[in-house]
């Protein structure tokens, strides 16, 4: 005798029921939790931007963001202006930090779309920071960073993160020992041309004493993630480099 669960009609009914049940549970969970998740992400963006410009609770060697309770106040205190550049247009927009870089990158692939480029201007102890969000690809998935620079395009700080790099290897790009290496590095070369910062193996300068060599030491075992970081910085910051080169030449 055929088992009840082997019948075609049962299989189809089960499949439909399964899709409905699982789909609605997931959709319910996703939409019910969305406000919470969005709020967490919003605060995290503010924390990350502030982290890059050096407003953080770092002690010893672990990454410490400022607490979520104070981040909104600190953000309006330190980030004095948020600009969005779109073609020849520049507008001031306090929601600029919420611009989805991924969406902009995808949309900009079609020629008709002019990409929105956010630029955050921070001020700390009388010094101006330019903070730029960048996004690229690691080994498995997306990587992104906030890079804080002064007017000579010398890095004041970075915050990097990733969606799913290998734990223990590429995932370490969000650790202090890697991110701190970028501080003080030059993005322009000696002649004032934009070259970016290369994450390189076999660096002659593994402890990173020379800050003008446009290179930091790679993480052993995370070659592709490191190459992704180099490419991300080279491609994304180049767009902004004309502004800094202009400042330097005038």
């Amino acid at each position: 005798m055929e088992k009840r669960t082997d019948k075609n009609s049962y299989t189809i009914l089960f499949a439909i029921g399964m899709v409905l049940v699982v789909g609605s549970i997931l959709a319910f969970a996703a939409s019910a939790l969305k406000p919470n998740i969005d709020e967490n992400k919003r605060l995290e963006k503010q924390q990350n931007i502030l982290y890059a410009m050096g407003v953080n609770d770092n002690e010893e060697s672990s990454v410490a963001m400022i607490s979520t309770d104070v981040v909104a106040d600190k953000f309006s205190e330190y980030i004095v202006k948020q600009l969005v550049i779109k073609g020849d247009d520049v507008r001031v927009d306090d929601q600029a930090y919420l611009i989805d870089i991924k969406k902009e990158q995808t949309a900009a692939k079609s020629k008709s779309y002019e990409r929105q480029l956010p630029l955050f201007i921070g001020k700390k102890e009388g010094k101006i920071s330019y903070i730029v969000p960048v996004r690229g690809k690691g080994l498995w998935d997306a990587i992104w960073a906030y890079v804080a620079m002064d007017e000579n395009m010398i890095v004041q700080g970075v915050f990097m993160d990733h969606k799913g790099e290998t734990p223990g290897l590429g995932a370490n790009i969000n650790q202090r020992f890697f991110m701190d290496d970028f501080i003080g590095e030059h993005l322009l070369d000696d002649s004032g041309k934009f070259v970016g910062i290369n994450v390189s193996k076999g660096n002659a300068d593994p402890t990173n004493i020379d800050r003008t060599d446009n290179a930091v030491d790679a993480i052993a075992g995370a070659t592709i993630t490191g190459d992704g970081v180099s490419a991300m910085i080279r491609a994304e910051l180049k767009v902004y480099s004309s502004y800094f080169i202009h400042l330097k030449n005038n």
Binding site: V80, K81, I85, G87, I121, K238
Partner: peptide, 23 residues
Amino acid sequence: DAGDENVISQTAIEKIKKEVEQI
């Protein structure tokens, strides 16, 4: 590499400068 044509335009640069000066 991003091509040179994609960098921020001269007009935009002047506008950014103005905004920064205001700060």
